[in-house]
């Protein structure tokens, strides 16, 4: 599994994808940082993550859309499937590699924290809790992205399905209150308040595990049908 993580992680930086992801996120984050901090004159680092979470909706697919789809299209999945490595490990490896990119991005956001320290006293614990929530949200998103990527061999379709699903879960609560509990981005909203909600945390993790499991099952089924 370590081999897959290493290779996938390297691949993100061999292609522009890794840079594009981190770059895009930081640009958007900077804009939100500017508007939030300067318009409201607050040094609340964690508030930027409310907007930050919406960025994820659009850039996570960049990270995940090729993971399985490309392997299937180019046929390299045959190399993985005929190797002694189990499918679970392959998928977990890809998931962890993508998560690591998000972790790097999160570490980069500490520079905004540093800037705020200059002008006031932002709360470190709240910031860390927010980041934890953000990571959990990102993991849930990535796992769905990988699943979407495994159902098609076309990267674009995988990307569009992923964005579509995220936007759907984002806006559904506006149509009916019933959907409030299904919205991933809504679940995140408690973290910037410095509150680790057990129910939300569990839901995030459960969603992640469920998506990864679905991917494994899907790959296994496809293998046996072929």
């Amino acid at each position: 599994m370590w081999a897959v993580i290493k290779k996938e992680f390297k691949s993100y930086f061999y292609s522009p994808i890794g840079y594009v992801f981190i770059g895009l996120f930081l640009i958007m984050f900077s804009i939100f940082f500017y508007t939030d901090v300067f318009t409201y004159q607050s040094t609340n680092f964690e508030y930027i993550f409310y907007s930050g979470a919406t960025i994820l909706t659009f850039i996570v697919p960049i990270l995940t859309m090729r993971t399985m789809a490309e392997e299937r299209k180019t046929g390299t999945e045959q190399l993985l499937l005929t190797s002694p490595l189990s499918i679970t490990k392959v998928i977990l490896g890809k998931f962890i590699a993508a998560t690591l990119i998000v972790v790097i991005t999160l570490l980069c956001t500490f520079m905004y924290y540093a800037i705020l320290c200059f002008f006031g006293t932002p709360h470190l614990t709240t910031a860390l809790v927010t980041m934890l929530g953000f990571l959990l949200l990102a993991m849930a998103y990535i796992s769905f992205g990988i699943f979407a990527s495994s159902i098609t061999e076309n990267q674009i379709i995988a990307g569009v399905v992923t964005i579509g699903f995220f936007i759907l879960t984002w806006f559904l609560p506006q149509f009916s209150d019933i959907f409030t509990n299904f919205s991933l981005i809504n679940m995140f909203s408690k973290f910037p308040a410095g509150q680790i909600d057990i129910a939300d945390t569990v839901t995030f993790i459960a969603f992640t595990v469920a998506c990864l499991l679905l991917t494994v099952i899907f790959m296994q089924r496809r293998k046996s049908v072929r």
Binding site: K7, S11, Y14, S15, G75, L79
Partner: peptide
Amino acid sequence: IGYMPEGVPLYTDL
């Protein structure tokens, strides 16, 4: 088993 698939799929960015 060592398998060499048809159409030589490879990771081209390595």
